[in-house]
Design a protein around this nucleic acid. Structure first.
Lengths: 172, 172, 172, 172
DNA sequence: TTTT
DNA sequence: TTTT
């Protein structure tokens, strides 16, 4: 992979919920998590302390997704290094929507900061201790999240299992 | 400002168009730019070279916005250090939309990489070589982009000048 | 402060010992800590797992140094954002030595990752909740660590108290 | 490679001299460059503008080293993402010295910012468009710079060609 | 000298 | 020793 430009995101925050892990037709795992970062400051005029929490959609692929599935839970604190990707998708009535996510693949990393017993420490994207049946079927390991791949990798919430009990207008 | 967590974005890329600079009621400038980063890789199966360009919405405030206005043009190459912020806004018919931007304020920086003669080099957010009439009226310099502030700072494209020749459904 | 270029260091690691905090003539605090980061990998030939620990010298100034003194201890895990600075110093017999440190001042940050009860969360360099008698005497808050300032800020280990029970040849 | 902690350096600056490229016994290239970053600020007391230039030793391995050799020259502006490594070495009279370098290998990247015609754009460490005779003999590509490897990779300046017209006491 |  |  060659690059023109730099597209890098670094986050430290806590998971707002358990990871949402799915599998692509190839068998590769895709894990979505919501991470919160917050900042607080004193209003110059009122002197009151303000706080703002930002929620980030983070997507992991392949081996990293498996690790996310195994070790991360609601409340887990992690370090993430990834890149920005804005993905286009459609509502049920055909309207275009855009969602920006932090994608952790080539060049990215995840690191657990909780110090939980037995927890994996840190894992760069390209790590594959043992090729599982699942990941051996695909080649996503050395490929950046291509438009096509990512579309099937992080589909509309409703496209799995045929469910539809979600609000199509909320992109995340 | 104190922070729980880290929320950092680093970009190097080129402007897709001239900066879009507006002024808040306080007189503070707000500059929006679109920055492209691209990556290319070889498809493992077909061997073909693939390319993907990512477009980022970057927002500058205060003094930095003035510098962006003065020095940056379509094609300019810059280094940007900022943070992610997802902003909620509404379409004309009242539907909720979300747009994720890279905000350059406290803790952020911009740097020009073009080597243009007379160009400013690098500017952290909190720089104010000389308090202009505009920035002296506000206090945005030492305040992170608060939800309220940012909403008026980066309104729907059409909310300035009363214009409305834009597609409400496209968040950027 | 304007900059030509980018000089940024991001570390997450544990303190190898309690912070070493001193005070400049101005009364400003300077805190030195040693932080360990480690990586492990499998040797391609032998298949054995290798590990390498890297030790970093990190220097905090002013208010941040006070916080380091108050909250950090041997073993503490922190996130640090700073810049590289190589400092020249001399052995007792007049030989030049160079030490590279990670300086956390303007544009830098420190964040505690331990989740200790009562622990401060994150602190950018320029934070000064209340101007203490100490920091009010100096102006280090808005000044990058200048060569002169830093020299007095992080002097030879022996220059405090006139002691000399250390090995002059070990720069850290 | 797994990691406990984060050890990341991001630099944008200019080469102070042409790259210094050497070859390891395995045939793998090692390129050393000196990169300058500078910052300026106004002294609060005197009001004078101060400037400080920082010089960084950056080391590239394998394929990246070849690219550095081919495309970079004195004055070239580059973006570098690497990690800190402090290396121990000895003077001719057996004294220990330490040098801190920015190592660009696994997880690192280099990007040319000059827009020179024919220049390569960006190259992550693990890129190997075509296995050259040299790099095919080694396995450095997927191995972090191990203590042993790096020692032979970035030896004392005088250890090549048997020359000795250098000051042993200056670590860089 | 840390941590797992 | 670079760059503006």
């Amino acid at each position: 992979m060659a690059t023109r430009g730099v597209n890098k995101v670094i986050l430290i925050g806590n998971l707002g919920a358990d990871p949402d892990v799915r599998y692509m037709p190839s068998g590769d795992a895709v894990a979505n998590v919501r991470i919160a970062t917050s900042e607080s400051w004193k209003d110059r005029n009122t002197g009151e302390t303000q706080e703002r929490t930002e929620w980030h959609n983070v997507v992991f692929f392949g081996k990293l997704a498996e690790i996310v599935k195994q070790y991360l839970r609601k409340g887990s604190k992690i370090y993430v290094e990834g890149k920005l990707r804005t993905r286009k998708w459609q509502t049920q009535d055909g309207q275009d929507r855009y969602t920006t996510e932090v994608v952790v693949d080539i060049g990215g990393t995840m690191q657990m900061l909780d110090g939980r017993p037995g927890g994996a420490s840190s894992v760069p994207f390209d790590e594959a201790p043992a090729a599982s049946a699942r990941s051996s079927g695909g080649s996503s390991g050395a490929r950046p999240a291509a438009p096509d791949a990512s579309q099937s990798a992080t589909p509309d919430r409703g496209s799995f299992g045929g469910g539809s009990d979600f609000d199509d207008d909320i992109p995340f």
